[in-house]
Design a binder for these strands. Structure first.
Length: 739
DNA sequence: GTAGGGTTAG
């Protein structure tokens, strides 16, 4: 019977919410008579968009969108009205039965439905039934509606230890440490003795809400008050200690766990590995793992992540392979961990391969996997893979997740689809500094400086605090758009208004910004004022600006510094030589030529920026007469034949998506691209013409294309224009790439 | 008929 209620509720809640969204979203709570005292709620009362309500569904951790979240407790109010209760009762087939309501609440999928059930209970005079109230309280805690939960508890004639504990854990998990401690006291004064579970709930909640020190202190206090922390409390505290990075406290907890006999508990092992990994103790994590008695998948995952954190990427990957070979039942966390490990260490193609392998193993990605793998798609400009991830996220209702949204914005921007990025950005129900940075950076990356600056202003209007990344994007955008004075102002505001000390990249942006505007002396002053030794990017930027404005004196200063920092970089010498040549200072040209000879450096083919630029322009413009185009077209034909032979067909979703984007006349080329990208990722290595194909069609920025060209035409190259500087070696971009 | 604490992936 309860399961039938659950099915009906689920069905009913969907239609109720769909039909009633306007009313729930926009109606003023004050306009409806209140049955009980104002019942606090959140989004409706604030008039926030309905999509935000989706946050309340299901797993709170997942919905808030972060592992350890810190969200404010709701204190606004909405009324539980008799009309809602009555409407609810008219809609369902079951009677308002005190035996059924708890079951209904147990399977309740949305907060507003819980409100309706609450209203129905009040209408049917069951709101004081102990089972009903207890269920209501736990349901409200589940949805994070703490003020609702509190109000229920206050009215409960009998408050059990479970009720108190749930509320305390709920407040702690929502970041309201003060309220949880207060409740603990109230609980005591009400004559209920807290137990280990109450304490553990407090420790766990504080840890999850990011109040890491509070969590550790709670564990200490628990012990002082005579409760012996068990495996659960120790695991939570270890997790908190890892975030704080206090390894000595972690070691004490380790010792305690041994004494208390819970060291070999699987969760303690995992938490210990995690803690040592976060504290940079790579040796300890292996030892703790080796000591554990059985192969626990969580410990395996923690080990992989721990090694990854400590820059032992190859070890992490080979260990993962060993686990696969040993038949360890790896789960979605395991696969996400290894994908994240590769992405974070610049192994994008390996990450993409592992992601595909994960899918072929039948492991479905979740809302953490998607933002982990998206940067890999973004970095190799695999737009179609990115879109597939977008479609998947849409189907799985992950788009409200702030990590998923931000990663999609970043992916679309890096793949040259700035408008798509903006669409995702605008639809995000909530944003954090990462989301803003992704969008502002996306604009800056594609030269849309005005949009970048405008968005930066809106960010401030929304009272979101910019960080150092935001300013890198904004300063770079200002430099590109020639907004010199504005850039200067932001550089000052960054330090004096926002308290952010400029880093190397901010100085590089300023040197570029001033240099480009012809204020070379100011640029030089900035370099001299820097609190650290300028790197090659800084001097390179100045040298580039000197080329632009024909300033030989400063060019010589910049070049001298650059030659010391990068003695083997032929591009620097060539640039100085070009500056001399533009002034017809042939002595200077000869001097540089001699220097290059002495060092055994040659002006390699393809070394000059102009040559590269011309090639990129030809490619991007789709110049079919270019010899490389013939090779690409030929390769594409081969791939298409091969794909057809292997029985691959382009996904309908993609085609429809493209049609919607009014790219009808490009459908054929999009098809080809998909085939090429798909097969390219299956069976080819980086540096094949496939990258050009992708860049050619989908990447508005020539950055990736340059990277590609340099990877197979010359071994080392330094490319600078007035906006950016790139140093390529063996196909890798090693400096000046702040994105 | 309800109900309290668990580690690891972004």
């Amino acid at each position: 019977m309860p399961s039938l209620v659950a099915v009906e509720l689920h069905h009913w809640s969907n239609s109720f919410i769909a039909a009633d969204s306007k009313r729930w979203t926009y109606s003023s709570p004050a306009s409806t008579p209140s049955l009980s005292s104002p019942m606090p709620n959140s989004d409706e009362a604030r008039g926030e968009p309905q999509s935000r309500l989706a946050l309340r569904k299901g797993n709170i951790k997942e919905d808030i969108g972060c592992k350890k979240y810190n969200s404010k407790v709701n204190n606004s109010s909405v009324s539980i009205t008799p009309s809602i209760g009555a409407r609810f009762l008219r809609h369902v087939s079951f009677p308002p039965d005190p035996h059924l309501l708890p079951s209904a609440l147990k399977s309740c999928p949305a907060l507003r439905l819980a409100h309706a059930l609450h209203a129905a209970a009040v209408v049917a005079s069951m709101s004081l039934d102990p089972f009903v109230t207890s269920s209501l309280l736990h349901t409200y805690v589940r949805f994070g509606a703490m003020a609702n939960a509190r109000s229920v508890l206050d009215r409960m004639p009998y408050k059990s230890i479970m009720d108190w504990s749930a509320l305390i854990a709920g407040y702690a998990a929502r970041g309201d440490a003060k309220e949880s401690w207060g409740l603990l006291e109230q609980m005591r004064s009400a004559g209920v003795e807290p137990n280990v579970i109450t304490w553990n709930g407090l420790v766990s909640g504080l840890n999850r809400s990011g109040h890491t020190w509070d969590a550790v202190l709670a564990l200490v206090k628990m012990q002082v008050e005579g409760f012996l922390p068990d495996a659960i409390g120790v695991s939570c505290a270890l997790s908190a200690v890892g975030d704080v990075g206090d390894v000595s406290f972690g070691e004490q907890l380790h010792g305690y766990a041994v004494k208390a006999g819970c060291r070999l508990d699987a969760c303690v092992t995992t938490a210990l590995i995690d803690m040592y990994g976060k504290c940079g103790r790579a040796d300890e994590i292996v030892q703790v793992f080796d000591e554990s008695s059985h192969m626990d998948v969580s410990s395996c995952n923690a080990l992989v992540t721990g090694l990854s954190r400590n820059a032992q990427v190859s070890d992490a990957v080979s260990l993962f392979r060993e686990f696969v070979g040993q038949g360890v039942e790896l789960n979605v966390v395991s696969w996400t961990s290894i994908v994240a490990c590769c992405v974070q260490n610049g192994r994008d193609l390996e990450a993409v391969d592992l992601f595909r392998e994960m899918q072929s193993e039948g492991i479905e990605p979740n809302s953490v996997t998607i933002p982990c793998v998206l940067p890999a798609f973004a970095n190799v400009a695999a737009l179609m893979h990115g879109r597939a991830a977008h479609c998947f996220a849409l189907r799985k209702d992950f788009l409200h997740n702030i990590y998923v949204g931000s990663a999609l914005v970043d992916m679309y921007a890096k793949c040259g689809r700035v408008k798509d990025a903006r669409m995702i950005f605008d639809a995000m129900p909530s944003r954090n500094v990462v989301s803003w940075n992704a969008m502002i950076g996306g604009y800056a990356m594609h030269g849309e400086a005005v949009n970048a600056v405008q968005l930066f202003r809106s960010m401030q209007r929304y009272r979101h605090k910019p960080d150092q990344v935001t300013f890198t994007c904004v300063l770079s955008a200002c430099g590109q758009a020639g907004l010199t004075e504005e850039g200067r102002r932001y550089f000052n505001e960054m330090q004096h208004k926002h308290g952010i000390s400029p880093r190397m990249e901010h100085y590089a942006c300023m040197v570029t910004l001033l240099g480009r505007a012809g204020k070379l002396d100011d640029a030089y002053d900035i370099i001299n004022e820097m609190p650290f030794v300028p790197d090659g990017c800084i001097w390179g930027s100045l040298l580039g600006s000197c080329r632009l404005h024909g300033n030989v004196v400063l060019a010589e200063v910049a070049a001298e510094n650059l030659f010391q920092l990068e003695p083997e970089n032929a591009g620097n010498y060539v640039l100085l030589s070009n500056i001399y040549a533009s002034k017809r200072m042939w002595d200077g040209v000869n001097r540089v030529r001699d220097m290059m000879k002495d060092k055994g450096l040659k002006k390699e083919k393809g070394c000059s920026w102009i040559e590269i630029k011309n090639k990129v322009h030809m490619l991007l413009a789709g110049d079919t007469s270019h010899p490389m185009m013939t090779a690409i077209t030929e390769k594409l034909k081969q791939l298409t034949v091969e794909m057809t032979r292997l029985g691959f067909a382009p996904s309908t979703d993609f085609v429809l998506h493209d049609v919607e984007e009014q790219e009808k006349d490009e459908i054929l080329s999009v098809h080809s691209e998909k085939l090429a990208v798909a097969l390219g990722l299956v069976s080819t290595s980086p540096g094949t013409p496939l990258r050009v194909i992708k860049n050619l069609r989908i990447c508005g920025d020539c950055h990736e294309a340059m990277k590609f060209i340099s990877s197979f035409e010359v071994r080392e190259i330094s490319v600078r224009d007035t906006n950016r500087f790139h140093h390529f070696k063996d196909g890798k971009c090693s400096c000046g790439d702040y994105w």
